[in-house]
Amino acid sequence: MEFKTHIRVRNVNVFYGKEQALKNVSVDIPDRRITAIIGPSGCGKTTLLKSFNRLIDTTDGVRVSGEISVDGENILDPKVEVTHIRKKMGLLSQKPYPLPMSIYDNVAYGPRIHGIKDKKRLDEIVERYLRQSSLWEEVRDRLRTPASRLSVGQQQRLCLARGLAVEPEIILGDEPTSALDPSSSQRIEQRFLELKNQYTIVIVTHILRQARRLADYVIFLYLGELIEHGTAEAIFENPKEQMTREYIKGIIS
C-alpha cells in the first residue's frame, strides 16, 4: 500500500519537567487513512497526539523539540499561530465534554469563533455536521436544548460534529470510545470508517481489537520510544520487533 504523508514527525522529544515523555520520535502519518497509536498506559500516546494540535502547550512545564510538519508547515515553530493549527484538526477526547450551551450552539461554536455570523449558513453547517456524525435524526427537534442532557454516546457524536464543523483536515481521537457503551462505540467507529475518505484520522487506543478493526497504519510506542510503525497488516500479522510481538500477544501491557 502506498501512502501520501500528511503529518511528518521528526525527532520529537517532549519533556514534562525532568521527565521525558517522548524520545526522539520520527514517523510519517498517512493522508486519508486511519492511523492508530497503540501501546501501554503512560507510553506517550496521548502526548504524541496532543503535540499535533499543540494542546500540549497548555500543560505547565512542558518542553517540546523536533519538527512536526503538516502540509509542509512546521507546527512546532513558535511563530505559528496555534489557533490556525487547531482549526485544521478536530479532537475527540476520552470523555466527551460538550460546551455549556445548546446542541445547536455547540456545533456552531467553532464556525462562529472563526467569523461566520450568517444565520442561514450556520443552520446549514449545524445540520450538515450533525448528519455526518449521525446525530441529526435524534436531535433535530431539540436543537435548542442543553447539550448536557444528551446521553454520553450522543455527546461524543456531538463533539465529533462540533469538531467537523470547523472543517478540519485531520481528526484526532484520544481513546474516543473509552467512556462509551459498546453500541455507542460501534457508531463512532462506523463514523470513522466513513470519514476516512475525506479526513486523516489519528486515534490513540489501548484496545487492540479496535486498532485491528479500524487502522490502516499502526504506531507502537513503549515508554516514550517508537518501537515499530507500519501498515496494520505488517504490525499485526508480521511484527518485526520482539516487543511489538509480545504486546500484541498480551504478554506485556
Partner: peptide
C-alpha cells in the same frame, strides 16, 4: 471548571479570551 472543557474549546481554534 474542568481543564478538559477548556481544551475542547482550544481544540476548535478558540483563543484564550474566547
Amino acid at each position: 471548571v474542568p481543564q478538559e472543557l477548556l481544551e475542547s474549546s482550544y481544540a476548535l481554534g478558540a483563543t484564550r479570551l474566547q
